[in-house]
Computed example of a mutant assay.
Amino acid sequence: METLLNLPKVELHCHLDGSVDLHALSQLYQLEGLTKTEEDLLKEAVAPATCLNLTEYLRCFPVTTKVLASEKAMMIAVLSVAKQAAAEGVRYLEIRFSPDFIQTADFSMEQVVQAAIEGVKLAQAVYPIRLGLILCMMRGRSEDVNRQVLGLAEKYLGQGIVALDVAGDESKYPMPLFKELFLEARAAGIPFTAHAGETGNLDNVLWALDYGARRIGHGIALIKDLSQAEDLKSAGILLEMCPISNLQTGASVSWETYPFGIFRETGLAVSINTDNRTVSSSSLTQEFGTLDAQVGSLTVGDVYQITRDSAQAAFLPEGDKLALLDELDQAYQAFDLKASLR
């Protein structure tokens, strides 16, 4: 595990409100004049190892979002996630969140976004990591609210915001409900990913591809019809896989059927991600380690290829992307690519 911990990594799918560590979360409650011990938060903010469904998993998030509605709180949250990632060798991390779920009457969505951007600036000054922010439109919210999120993504694109997403309960709110919003995003030049195929609906993946998504969050349902993989490969689409979360929520029913190996054999580009570091009690090191133990032996070279594919799919300007790829190539020269992770 020490070798894996030291390997340079890239993470593309990490939710802010699911990844604030328990110590920082306890501090956020203190800022609000509330008392929540880390032991209390362990029960409320961490999901069971096996959830009944995605809905049960999502119940953990309000514990955090309810104490993020100030500039200081947002900065503490971003710093918490950046610190965790930097400590395990993550060189580039994209953090996503819904400004709508954090806003209050006294703290607007725009103030939420501005505070997160300030948090990114501070985190990058303190830790050896680069960050990008993805704004999430949310399933179940009004089109007007989601259009405001889209507008904020357009306004702050290139100033810390790197892309747009749609998240939430996919089983209740399929992709066609967001078609017009994504077409508007595409017309405005805002790159976007989309949570799709996490709850068994392959059509959501195909719709997201059709609307112009450059990545797919989870995409597990693609296993139902691998013939569709050719279209994703042709379009250069990467799947943001989150193994531990995918087993928790039932997106995959067992490690024996988890499609990581099949997707790679098919030639699909995949990234490995935590999804929610706190809710899933995970780290990127644990995600790779679990895959190695449960799905099939991985080598340092496998991690390198996945990391490189992730960097290639990052929502970065081309010059910055090339610099990141060069940084990774040089860093991995210090490792034996044929070596086992164990």
Rank of each mutant, 00 (worst) to 15 (best):
T257W: 12
L5S: 07
A116D: 08
A153D: 09
I220P: 03
H218N: 08
V78Q: 04
N146D: 12
S227C: 07
L337Q: 11
L22F: 01
A69V: 02
D169H: 14
D336T: 00
I102M: 00
L135F: 03
A24L: 00
L337V: 07
C242R: 09
V270H: 06
G140M: 05
F107N: 00
L239I: 09
H218K: 11
D225R: 07
Y127F: 15
L152E: 08
A87N: 14
V270I: 15
L291Q: 14
L68I: 05
G189Q: 11
L324P: 09
E287L: 13
F61Q: 08
S142H: 11
V113N: 01
C136A: 12
C136E: 01
V20G: 06
E318P: 00
G140Q: 09
L157H: 15
I237Q: 05
I223V: 15
D225V: 07
V46D: 01
V20W: 00
P99N: 04
L181E: 08
S310Q: 05
L181D: 04
L324S: 02
F107E: 00
D203M: 11
G289D: 13
E327D: 13
R59Q: 14
T65S: 00
I190W: 01
L150F: 14
Y127W: 05
T37V: 02
V166Y: 00
T278R: 09
L22E: 05
A85G: 02
I237T: 13
